[in-house]
């Protein structure tokens, strides 16, 4: 699970061009939106595409994405359970 969390952080940094962040800067419990990483609605869409592309997870329910993008811990748990690649 730790390897997946690190991989998710790396993917998020690369995909969202968070050039001022490193993997070490993101705590597993940090809020990804709002006061945490400060991501916006376009970033949320980009993360949905990333889940589809990298893990074969298709999110169609906006409420569900709000729930699973809470933190790296929550996201990793969801990806580990639902990934198809």
């Amino acid at each position: 699970m730790d390897a997946l969390k690190k991989e998710l952080k790396e993917n998020i940094i690369e995909q969202l061009n968070l050039e001022e962040f490193t993997v070490e800067d993101i705590d597993n419990d940090d809020a990804l939106f709002g006061d945490g990483l400060g991501l916006d609605s376009i970033d949320a869409l980009e993360l949905i595409v990333m889940l589809d592309k990298d893990y074969g997870i298709k999110l169609t329910d906006p409420e569900k994405s709000k729930e699973i993008f809470q933190s790296i811990n929550v996201l990793a748990e969801y990806v580990a359970t639902h990934r198809v690649k």
Partner: peptide
């Protein structure tokens, strides 16, 4: 995989 961040 169309990128929303590129599209905007």
């Amino acid at each position: 995989y169309p990128s929303p961040a590129v599209f905007v």
